[in-house]
Design a protein around this nucleic acid. Structure first.
Lengths: 91, 91
DNA sequence: TACTGGTAATCGGTAATACAAAGTACCTGT
DNA sequence: ACAGGTACTTTGTATTACCGATTACCAGTA
C-alpha cells in the first residue's frame, strides 16, 4: 500500500480496486481501511479530502517524508527476506 | 521453519542456530519456540524426545503429512505473493 | 418518490502473530 | 558448588490480519 500510494495520490476505495486488479482478488474494503488508518496513525501520509461526483467525498493520501522513508525500509527488508527465503527454497 | 524441519528431524535450539546462520541473526529462542508450539498445536509435526549428551533431552520434530501439505501451501502462496510484490516493485 | 446500485469511509470485534524476557532443567568440567 | 553451555517452557504485550456490518452520498429509474 505504501508503494501504491507512492505512485500518486489515491484513496481507500481505489486502492482496494488496484489490489484486486493486481491479483489480490479477495481483498475487501475493511482490510484496506484498517491499513489506511494505521498509516494515518503513524503519520506516514498526508490527507486531503475532495468531493466525488459519484458518492461521498474521497480521502486522498500521499506519502510524506516519513512514509517515503518507511517504504525505503520496507524494500530493504523485502530484499533481505525474499532473498533468504528463495535461498532456502532452492538450496 | 517448516522448510527447515522438512530437511530432516531437528529441534528448537538447533533451529534457532540455523536461522542465525541463515542471516536472521537477531532471532531469539523465545520466538522460535512459540512457533514450534504452534506447529505442535496444529499437528503439523511428529515429536520424538531423545536424550542429549550436552544438556536436557531434545524434542525432535519431523513434518508429518499435514505439515508437508502446509509447506506446499506456503510455497504456493510465497510464489504468488513474491511475484506480485516484485512486479509492483519493478513496474 | 421510493428504491436500487455503485461509490466511499468507518466502526467494532475476534483471532492470530510477532517477539522477547525470564525462568526452569540438565549436564560437564573445574 | 558453581559457572557455562545446552535445551525447553512460561507468560505477557503489542501489533496485525481480517472482516462483517453500518453509515453516507449520489444518480438513475420505475
Amino acid at each position: 500500500m505504501l508503494e501504491i500510494i507512492s505512485r500518486g495520490e489515491t484513496y481507500g476505495y481505489e486502492i482496494t480496486q488496484q489490489l484486486r486488479e493486481l491479483g489480490f482478488t479477495e481483498v475487501v474494503e475493511g482490510t484496506v481501511y484498517t491499513i489506511t488508518m494505521r498509516l494515518e496513525k503513524n503519520k506516514l501520509v498526508d490527507i486531503e479530502k475532495k468531493p466525488s461526483t459519484k458518492g461521498p467525498p474521497r480521502k486522498f493520501y500521499t506519502l510524506n517524508a516519513a512514509g517515503q522513508e518507511q517504504l525505503g525500509f520496507f524494500w530493504g527488508k523485502w530484499e533481505f527476506v525474499s532473498s533468504k527465503i528463495n535461498e532456502l527454497k532452492t538450496k
